[in-house]
Nucleic acid binder design. Structure first.
Lengths: 234, 234
DNA sequence: CCAAAAGTGTTATCAATACACCCATGT
DNA sequence: ACATGGGTGTATTGATAACACTTTTGG
């Protein structure tokens, strides 16, 4: 079983940094830790890797077990491996960041396991080094979202341009010019205009759009410059 | 010692994907694997994580032990965690990519441990999933180098613009317009012109430059667009 | 008819490219 | 003197951003 003799084996966990958007604010999903120590303190959703699982499998399993969410956008992110990060026993954490539309999953999430959404500027104390993970992941989210159309993952299947703009403004904590924003996004060719309008937030009403899925996949890796003056955020 | 009961502990290794540049070609540094199985087959430089080490520490130690190199540019890269990737025993690999100037270290490397530089288009068979690691890392190198001035790490302290251009052309396997390239790089403000000229490669001679270290650090995270038409590479 | 939000048009500025041309010098 | 590579100048194109203006419709 231990074929490489004399080596040190380490517990390996996955932790998911789950961002959501409710139409107004970008939020982060946390759960209460179920193990001692720090039981009951807020924590990222995580779990240990099982013998037959890859870290990616483990992250997807953890997410599904705890929230019922499947087929979520999830990226491997960073390894946190300071030998003292978990005071109980050395544990390596492979982190993932995930993006979901809050409304689509609100019901599943209101259940037994008490996950809760937190505003980014109002985060509770978190276990171990989870606060650091979140800080770095948010930076990474901003970085990646400036170049690639990942934030669409946070929106429902149909959405308006003003909603999209509110999302970008939430992520970058700033305001963009409405007129340039809509033209820039439309010029990517990623959006398909629908007949229907959203009349909730204005009298004129804003057209709904949906993603052009094939165009989205083809252009995902291109550098799109979706954010004005991106340099100022880095 | 095992404080979280009933969990599965895993061997964790680090593997370093080391890119170098000799003035003409971009190359990758490999060593012969010292353990069975596949002993003697080419491999990335790697080793297991010790109990008191973070993965970053381990990567630096491995690099120093095997090559004598210290203070090398190194980025945490990706975790490879397929449970079957090492047939001997499950081993998680945390990979790093490193960039060094080949000439500065040629002597150290010619020693006992038989590391060897390989051209990217002439790579030998490699152990386990190391070939996959290299493929993905090269993509990542191209991605990052298009936006951030990392390739300077591959050059000596003083270098000419034509040398720099040869490096970029090697990384992207294409040719850039000399005139635009030099103006674009100079306009970043990252370069300081020296009095001396390199007369090796032309009669006129090309001025040497060095990095403006503080400017380099300040602007490292900015999006610089150092590569013409970067989209076509992704 | 007015307020409020959606979205189009217009223009100035700047960056990126393509390419003509001049420069320095070893042979 | 001339071939070779280094480097500057210039025109064109296109993207960006700032901002005026029109459009729609519920109250």
């Amino acid at each position: 079983m231990h074929e490489y003799p004399g080596q040190h084996r380490i517990l390996v966990a996955v932790d998911c940094i789950i961002f959501g958007f409710d139409g107004v604010n970008v939020k982060l999903l946390l759960v209460k830790r179920s193990l001692t120590p720090e039981q009951g303190k807020w924590s990222l959703m995580g779990g240990f890797i099982n013998p037959s699982e890859s870290p990616d499998d483990a992250a997807n399993r953890v997410l599904e077990e705890r929230t019922g969410l499947k087929d979520v956008y999830m990226d491997q992110f960073m390894v946190f491996g300071n030998p003292k990060r978990d005071p109980v026993e050395r544990t390596l954490s492979v982190t993932y960041f995930a993006l979901i539309d809050i409304h689509q999953y609100e019901e599943q999430l209101s259940g037994e396991h008490s996950p809760e959404w937190f505003l980014l500027d109002n985060m509770p104390d978190m276990v171990f080094d989870h606060a650091e993970m979140v800080t770095i992941a948010l930076k990474q989210l901003r970085y990646k979202a400036a170049l690639h159309p990942i934030l669409f993952q946070l929106l429902p299947g149909k959405f308006t341009i003003p909603q999209l703009q509110a999302l970008y403004e939430g992520v970058y904590q700033t305001e963009f010019d409405d007129r340039n924003f809509s033209r820039k996004l439309l010029s990517t060719g990623l959006l398909v205009k629908l007949a229907e309008k959203d009349k909730q937030s204005s009298k004129k009403g804003a057209f709904y759009y949906r993603l052009d899925q094939s165009h989205y996949e083809e252009n995902f890796e291109k550098f799109l410059n979706l954010v004005p003056n991106p340099d100022k955020f880095f």
